[in-house]
Amino acid sequence: MTRKQKRLAVIGGALVFLGAATALTFYALGQKASYFFMPADLQAASLSPGQRIRLGGLVEPGSIRRGQGTQVSFAVTDTDKSVPVTYTGILPDLFREGQGVITEGTLGADGVFEADSVLAKHDETYMPKEVADSLKEKGIWQEETPGSGS
């Protein structure tokens, strides 16, 4: 191989690698990104079975039921519709009724959302961004009272 051919081979190899990485990235974005839904959007959404999604909303007051050991079930609501959720594990510190929450997992055929992770806000002035935006759209959210946010 001449020097020029070698250089072409190297550049070609690099381009193949970059192409493969790009293809992989877009494939992964299509497959592995999880969409965010509020309970009311969920019925309109067409989900393939077993697709991972994020479900956000408020923990419906009075819906928390503790089952055997570490099992817990509750409902996530946007004050319009509500979706029952089951979860096994430790709930976050700030998980409370009426509180903003994001759960991640899959929606079962029976309409029960099986969550494998539950995120609540980190502190009392923080509402998960997706939840806050959606609630604002629906006009349920009110801006924080002055002095409570920074």
Binding site: A21, L24, T25, Y27, A28, L29, Q31, K32, A33, S34, Y35, F36, R52, R54, E104, E130, D133
Partner: peptide, 18 residues
């Protein structure tokens, strides 16, 4: 306006092989 989250599954599939 779609909200998605890109987490560990995405990075395991892309960052890992690279």
């Amino acid at each position: 306006g779609d909200k998605i989250s890109v987490g560990a599954p995405f990075f395991n599939l892309t960052f890992g092989p690279v």
